[in-house]
Design a protein around this nucleic acid. Structure first.
Lengths: 261, 261
DNA sequence: CGACTAGTTGAGGCCAGTCAATGTTGGTGG
DNA sequence: CCACCAACATTGACTGGCCTCAACTAGTCG
């Protein structure tokens, strides 16, 4: 039982304290409002009615936060004060398991909202870390609540946000409970592809922002297994893998992997 | 009265259409209000203030539904109209996976609320089935929403309900992603034990209401593995297993299983 | 009784984990 | 600019945990 350095610190970037500013908060003085945001349809697809509610919606985002690769947005146990929406870049969320190890619970692309799991307890249940240089919008939760109270369609959207998080987590559960390794990785790639497409990026060619180990952690696999599968998918012509650059070559083939027992 | 003669594959009870009443809805004419319910502290731990809100809280549950073993409370795809709280008995929820198979996503004891995953989409994402003769309270969601709008502490409770569902699903994900078979089963038993204890039942001796196959489905294991593990736990003196009757003999030992790599 | 469901146990195989060696990439300082 | 180092990634050999297939028992119900 030799504890190598690698074993102790599973995600080194995550824990490495940045000098003098673990989280840097560059406040944009006149934050552009959600109303005119290009990500609005993805992030907050809602039609707020009434002058007062519209004003509140404009003022929903008070600040933006710039994160460098590896910076921590919030930690498990931090007081929950706001929801965060990814504007540029991407993040991962990491959950501590009972036995002390960590698991990547999700990857978050532009337009996706982070932090919902903290709503009930006033405390965040996960750690959020930037995978690259990233900018997030801060929506203070008291403002969110006030707007939800004022406007019914925003209230609906907030409920939708929470319940889709439940459904997403559940589908992750069924994936881990029923699928084999190749199916999990195929699911992961197809999911990423879809999400990029929705955002107007290429659905067939993208760059993975996370390591093999992080992918494996998310899928309940070891990094070697992930690496081997990438190689095999490449050989079989399903995808083309060059390091972190992924090109989907045979989407149908990937989807068929899922049907197979 | 009694369900019989089913064959099929995975969950025969679930798919068998009951004659003329797939779901039976015995409306209790004067449903007792939540205010005086013995399960209230577990089910709805909230202090509603104000006369009007208190009245709405009293009228929250309109009807109760009696279910026999195997009866379906709602199906995946059913329109979402209400939250349900288990009053007596127990239920399982079953989720359809992408490839058509099914997985048990949860077991629900008295005082637990079912159906939250439907809130956002107006549609239930799972099927809920009674594991024994069961009674559930119906909370029509429009009433829930109105009360949440009226009373801040109830609104909080509703958020808490949703976010704890997220956290629970996530911990299931980490369980399936990181634990080995024996750890999953130990986790399952300890979790049940805790939940029974909170409800005032014995935490060391209880009856499993589900089959080995259903347990396995929930834990991402095959029924044979579950059976073997029960036998092994029994041999090792961790638990005493007599069919579905479980007696925890060495709680510490079970907990230590979780720490071990 | 026979038919059926639930559960237990055994034998064998395969998928993914483990351990280990090696190759590749990217950031940093001289 | 290059050299260097650490992190990341690939690949191979081997192991073992869980699945699969199968036989058998016990209990239930018509």
């Amino acid at each position: 039982m030799h504890a190598t350095a690698a074993q102790v610190t599973l995600f080194p970037r995550a824990d490495k304290p940045r000098p003098a500013r673990p989280v840097l908060r560059d406040v944009t003085p006149h934050a552009r409002s959600c109303t005119s945001c290009s990500l609005r349809k993805i992030c907050m697809p809602v039609d707020v009615e009434g002058a007062q509610a519209q004003q509140m919606f404009r003022d929903l985002v008070t600040t933006r936060i710039r994160l460098h690769k590896g910076d921590v947005l919030f930690r498990a146990g931090d007081r929950f004060t706001a929801l965060y929406s990814v504007r540029v870049g991407s993040c991962k969320t990491v959950t501590l398991t009972d036995d002390g190890s960590e698991q990547v619970s999700g990857y978050h692309l532009p337009g996706e909202i982070i932090g919902v799991e903290g709503i009930g307890n006033d405390v965040h249940a996960a750690r959020a870390i930037a995978l690259e240089d990233t900018e997030v919008c801060v929506m203070p939760f008291d403002r969110v609540q006030q707007l939800a109270h004022e406007d019914a369609s925003f209230q609906r959207q907030l409920y939708r946000l929470l319940s889709t998080a439940i459904v997403r987590e559940r589908s992750a559960t069924t994936m881990l409970g029923t699928m084999r390794a190749e199916q999990r990785l195929a699911t992961f790639l197809l999911d990423l592809s879809n999400r990029y497409q929705v955002r107007g990026y290429s659905s067939t060619e993208f760059v993975l922002r996370m390591t093999r180990e992080e992918i494996g952690s998310h899928l309940g696999l070891k990094l070697e297994t992930v690496s081997r599968l990438f190689s095999r998918f490449d050989e079989e012509g399903l995808v083309e893998v060059q390091g972190r650059v992924i090109k989907l070559r045979d989407r149908i083939g990937l989807q068929q992997l899922l049907c197979a027992s």
